[in-house]
């Protein structure tokens, strides 16, 4: 059941990214580019996605996931150095290429060779992150 729901969730995610146009780098960069011909689509995608999620979170307290186990524990609310630095790096890459991790995967079947190059670079960046964390901790005192 767990795998069936994982496939359903992934399918909804992929379908949503596809029909919303979020795998089109021009729409993402068009939203970020406030000095250009501004494209509002991304705001509707974000807003549309937050509505079902906000409803879902209301069902979490006092219950268990359908397939068993536990809901994710409330993570620390601390704003850390890595959160700010990582998000800034992510934003810079997102602006440069117009892709974030979800659309990067959703577009692999039809985006062409540069989407694959992006995906490989993204996986390499992810693989290097444990090392980057260690280096950062040596360079600057954590949090």
């Amino acid at each position: 059941m767990r795998l069936l729901f994982a496939f359903l969730a992934g399918g909804l995610f992929g379908a949503g990214l596809f029909v919303s146009g979020m795998t089109d780098t021009a729409k993402v960069q068009g939203w970020l580019d406030v000095f250009g011909d501004w494209d509002p689509t991304l705001a509707f995608v974000m807003g549309g996605a937050i509505i079902p999620m906000a409803i879902a979170w209301r069902f979490v307290p006092g219950r268990r996931p359908l397939v068993g186990g536990d809901f994710p524990a409330q993570v620390s609310s601390q704003v850390s150095r890595n959160l700010v630095l990582g998000s800034t790096m992510f934003g810079a890459g997102w602006g440069l290429a117009g892709l974030c991790p979800g659309p990067a995967i959703a577009s692999l079947s039809y985006g062409g060779v540069w989407h694959w190059v992006f995906a490989v670079a993204m996986l390499a960046g992810m693989a290097l992150t444990p090392l980057l964390r260690v280096k950062l901790d040596r360079l600057i005192v954590a949090d």
């Binding site: 359903l8 992934g10 909804l12 995610f13 919303s20 995608v45 996605a49 079902p52 996931p65």
Partner: peptide
């Protein structure tokens, strides 16, 4: 475009809701 953005967003959010409520994952 904005309508398809909203429709796609609702699909994405529903996927997130399924993953959370069924599997307990973010």
């Amino acid at each position: 475009d904005w309508i398809w953005g909203l429709v796609g967003g609702l699909l994405i959010g529903t996927g997130g809701a399924v993953y959370l409520l069924a599997n307990g994952r973010i």
